[in-house]
Simulated scan of single mutants.
Amino acid sequence: MTIPTAVPALDEATDLSAAPLEPWQVVVWNDPVNLMSYVVRVFRTYFGYSLDHATALMLAVHHDGHAIVATGPRETMEVHAQAMHDFGLWATVRKATP
């Protein structure tokens, strides 16, 4: 086994900038278990949403079957989805569509 003795010099510029972060979404799905008032309370306490915004999201979940409740970096959205699970809500993470 040979061990390299020298590191070759780089004569070209290297672009070390990070790739742009692509947004991800937390989607909360309708379920037959949780009360609408409870879903509003979860959105208000966890996300800090106003009563009007939390109610609008809850109504979207109820009438449309789902609602996007948060958008951001994947790791953060995974934490939010896990928090929704901890509150007993059905939630998934998906890549945001343009």
Rank of each mutant, 00 (worst) to 15 (best):
T2R: 15
T5N: 15
A6C: 06
A9C: 09
A9W: 14
E12N: 12
A13F: 14
A13M: 09
T14Y: 09
T14M: 10
L16R: 09
P20H: 03
L21T: 09
W24L: 01
V26D: 15
V26A: 07
V27G: 05
V27A: 04
W29I: 14
N30G: 05
D31E: 07
M36P: 10
Y38Q: 03
V40S: 05
R41I: 14
V42Q: 00
F43V: 04
R44M: 12
T45H: 07
T45P: 15
F47Q: 06
G48S: 03
G48K: 11
S50L: 01
S50V: 00
L51T: 10
D52G: 05
H53F: 02
A54T: 00
A54C: 02
T55I: 12
M58I: 01
M58P: 00
L59T: 01
V61S: 03
V61K: 01
G65A: 01
T71H: 13
P73K: 06
R74Y: 10
R74S: 06
R74V: 03
T76H: 13
M77S: 07
M77F: 02
E78D: 10
V79I: 04
A83Q: 07
M84N: 04
M84I: 08
H85K: 14
F87D: 00
G88P: 11
A91V: 07
T92G: 02
V93A: 02
P98D: 05
